[in-house]
Nucleic acid binder design. Structure first.
Lengths: 185, 185
DNA sequence: GTTTTATATTATACCTGTATAATATAAAGC
DNA sequence: GCTTTATATTATACAGGTATAATATAAAAC
């Protein structure tokens, strides 16, 4: 499971609250790993029990108090160990759109609508999401330690999302053509 | 969740046992949806409670008895309803390889190894897995009702897996080049 | 003025996915 | 002859992901 390493990684840049981490996730890692705030808070507690992070409570005026998390020495070592592994994990596929396509022969019109929606969504991903991320990368690279170097790796993850979206668009177009020909008969 | 629809879809072709369904999943849907047998047996029970499938016990000699599942009228209607929706579900991304790449700046050599393994795995997917599936498609299209038409949709799902694998290979190559240039400095 | 948004966390329950062990026997491979 | 593979299901526990509600206030938007 990668969530704790995502949190350790972000905490290695800056001390953060659960709330900060939730937003940082949304701005950066979200393209390839989604985590809800409830999951992040739960994981931070677990990691504190394991000594990977420590926290202190900060009393605020007017706003709810916050709990600021820091990565510990053990946490940094664990992050470095995980990174150093260079291991490719097997990921079980879960892509429910293809379940619909697989059984789509009995509902060609609905499948066409699905494929068009899919194409559309991929176009949105490329346009909106990636523009947003490009911007995040810029602000990020100036804010953190060794940001220029690190941001190149961030950009690589973005690049795969874009390439996948492009491949999916081409695929959807080819399916749409096939089904339309079939329906026309 | 798509698992019950995968099971309903397969049961709409043929009555099957949990064991049959597990193998059919591995041969076909597995490219985009992985399900373990323990999950399939559990889901079948749930679906029977909901009246989507029915089952009868078949007493066998020498082998353990088996429970043969059939899709009910309600099950067929539910499958048709789901197919007719033509709805694109949002899928939360979980791709842990990219988590390692994201934080990879501190371990460029390990990241190179990771990317090479990734490229390799994609090549294997294209070669081995897809040859296997092409074969499955052929045998499948002759066995089931309206198989020639249905198998086209199966092939579409395979096509996306191949396109994604190709895009990922190209991506990995471009990342490898970038990092090697960096390391050489 | 009132509503919405942002800040910040805790609690809880459920659903899905994973892992594994137990059971039993025939057929195929070595 | 012995081991592995295939057949077939049940039981159980845990880990991870989702969903949502409760709480509280300042600042911004309308």
């Amino acid at each position: 499971m990668s969530l704790p390493f995502g949190l350790l990684g972000l905490l290695s840049y800056n001390d953060s609250t659960g709330y900060d981490l939730t937003r940082m996730f949304e701005d950066s890692l979200n393209n390839f790993w989604h985590a809800q705030s409830s999951q992040i808070y739960r994981e931070l507690k677990r990691m504190e029990e394991q000594g990977l992070v420590s926290s202190r409570s900060i009393i605020q005026d007017g706003r709810p108090n916050k709990r600021l998390y820091s990565i510990t020495g053990d946490g940094r070592r664990e992050l470095a160990r995980w990174l150093g592994e260079g291991r490719l994990e097997y990921e079980n596929p879960h892509f429910s759109m293809l379940m619909r396509v697989f059984f789509g022969a009995d509902a060609p019109e609905a499948t066409l609508a699905l494929l068009k929606a899919c194409k559309n969504q991929c176009e949105n991903i490329i346009e909106a999401n990636c523009a947003k991320n490009q911007k995040s990368i810029e602000s990020y690279s100036s804010l953190i330690n060794n940001g220029r170097e690190r941001s190149k790796y961030w950009a690589m993850t973005l690049d795969l999302s874009i390439r996948e979206a492009k491949a999916t668009i081409e695929w959807a177009e080819s399916c749409i053509t096939q089904i339309e020909e079939e329906v026309a008969k």
